[in-house]
Design a protein around this nucleic acid. Sequence first.
DNA 1: GTCCAGGGCCTAC
DNA 2: GTAGGCCATGGA
Length: 227
Amino acid sequence: MPACQVNKKNRTQPDLLGIYQLLLGFYGHRNWWPGETQDEIAIGAILTQSVAWKNVETALARLRDQGILTLRDIAAAPAEHIAPLIRSTLYYNQKTQKLKAFARWFGTTYDFDWRRMFSTPVPELRHQLLSLKGLGPETADSILLYAGRLPVFVIDAYTRRLFKRLDLTPAKDSYPDWQQYFSARLPVDPGLYNDFHAQIVHHCKILCQPVPKCADCPLGHLCPGKT
DNA sequence: GTCCAGGGCCTAC
DNA sequence: GTAGGCCATGGA
């Protein structure tokens, strides 16, 4: 029987910090968002919606090739110029509009100045981001955590998959409930939030796939194999 | 050919 | 409030 199929009542379940420490011990510090600048992090956060990161890398490289490196460039470029460059990220017409809407708002509201933007109180800034068309909670929180280094835990499909398998879930399967579940159980630490989420993504790409690779999994003994 | 990948919006009920 | 369709590429 794979380790992750062990009956859950026979398991001793550690807390979330314990899970993080197991992943950290296995994979090492990942401290990450795969983007060079704050502008790239924000662009990548929008482009990665519902698509594998590899496709985002292709799009970012094409944008760079055309000299579109910043949100100021995105705001200035015509939509018909941007769309073909980001074809690899699926729903490219929608994403072009999302990128331009965010870039325009960033320019008019904060003059493309991240420091100015992140001096806004977090709840107010998050509310502003969520009011933009095309930015939902995951994208907004990715920008706050990874571009702004603010203590906002990001919930994504990987996080839900892994912790559902571990049977560590909030009562309700909604974004705010998941976020509250993590926030209430972890110290307020953007560095921890960053690396924990990075560990989850890395772990899910390698081992906690739709068909899990239980034999090599550092969490296998904790996981009842649920999906 | 089929399935799925780091969402979010909109509509119908 | 919630389920389901839509968006529409690329790699396994």
